[in-house]
Simulated scan of single mutants.
Amino acid sequence: MTEPQPPQTRPVAQPPQGSMAQPGSGEVLFEGIAKHSASLGGYLKWTLVTLVAGAIAIFINMMEWGVPGWILGLLWLVGVPGLAWTYLEHTSTKFKITGRRVETEHGVLGKSVDSLELWRVLDVKYTQSVLDRLLGNGRITLISTDQSDPNLDLHGLPNHRALFEKLRDAVQDARQTNRPMELVGNQELDAQGGQTFEQLS
């Protein structure tokens, strides 16, 4: 008489070896604000508004419609609040980039901080438009698995080309060190090698 065989257990997917997060480099690659030329569009818009309002004030004055001078003076200042707000928005947007993550602080009145871990980044791109080349700016785009904001643009940061190369290397190091597993539908995807594991109940 044969002995009863123990029930077979279903295989359970295991994360790849070394998938536990390890402390990455804490080196600060950049900390501060972007160059003001990155907000050139906002500055030009409100400067144009000021010039148009000033031209209207001159026209009204030439027509001698009896409009008080203080009102004409206010027309010259109509774009100043917009210029001031653009400046405050620019200077209140701060970046801190390390070998582990990118932190972005926003807000003139209230404050909010967004953080993107570098091991979540899938690709790092560097682009320059014609205007960027003229102004000495560059755009670094981090394409990540973040659900709320998968593309993070870093525009107008100083030493942008060198920063791009450092970020590219830091992303590779972070992914090699951490080797996290991303959840895709009902599968687990090894973010390092792309191997999938069916989730078993």
Rank of each mutant, 00 (worst) to 15 (best):
V113E: 14
N186G: 13
E105W: 15
E103Q: 01
F95G: 04
L118Y: 03
D132L: 03
E165A: 02
E105G: 14
V184S: 13
K111Q: 12
V113K: 13
D114S: 13
H155K: 07
L183P: 15
T145H: 04
S144Q: 09
G107Y: 08
G138L: 02
K96H: 14
K96Y: 12
V108T: 05
D114N: 15
P150A: 12
V113S: 14
D146T: 09
E117V: 08
S112R: 14
G156V: 04
N178V: 06
R100H: 15
S115V: 14
E105D: 15
Q147D: 06
V130F: 01
G107K: 08
V102Y: 00
P180A: 04
L118I: 09
N151Q: 10
M181F: 10
P158D: 12
E103G: 05
L116K: 00
D132H: 03
K96N: 15
A170V: 06
S148L: 15
T177V: 07
K111R: 08
D146L: 03
H106M: 06
L152D: 05
A174M: 01
N159V: 11
N178Q: 11
K94C: 13
Q147V: 12
P180T: 02
T141W: 00
L116M: 01
R175M: 08
P150Y: 07
H106R: 09
L183N: 14
D153V: 04
R161G: 03
K125H: 08
Y126I: 04
T141V: 02
E188P: 11
R161P: 00
D146A: 09
L142S: 02
F95I: 01
R120Y: 00
R161V: 05
E165R: 09
G136F: 08
I140S: 01
L183T: 13
V102L: 00
L154K: 00
D169C: 06
L167R: 12
S144W: 08
A170S: 07
N159D: 12
D146S: 08
M181A: 12
L157A: 06
D149F: 12
N178F: 03
G156I: 05
R175N: 10
H160C: 09
E188V: 15
N178P: 03
T127S: 06
L131N: 07
T141L: 02
G110P: 05
R139E: 03
R161I: 10
E188I: 15
V113P: 10
V184A: 04
Q172W: 10
R175C: 03
G136D: 02
R139D: 06
N186Y: 15
R101T: 06
R168D: 10
I97V: 09
P158H: 08
S144F: 07
S115N: 10
L131A: 10
W119S: 13
L183Y: 14
Q147R: 14
L135N: 04
R179Y: 11
R139T: 13
H160R: 06
K94Y: 14
R179A: 11
F95Q: 01
G156H: 07
N137M: 06
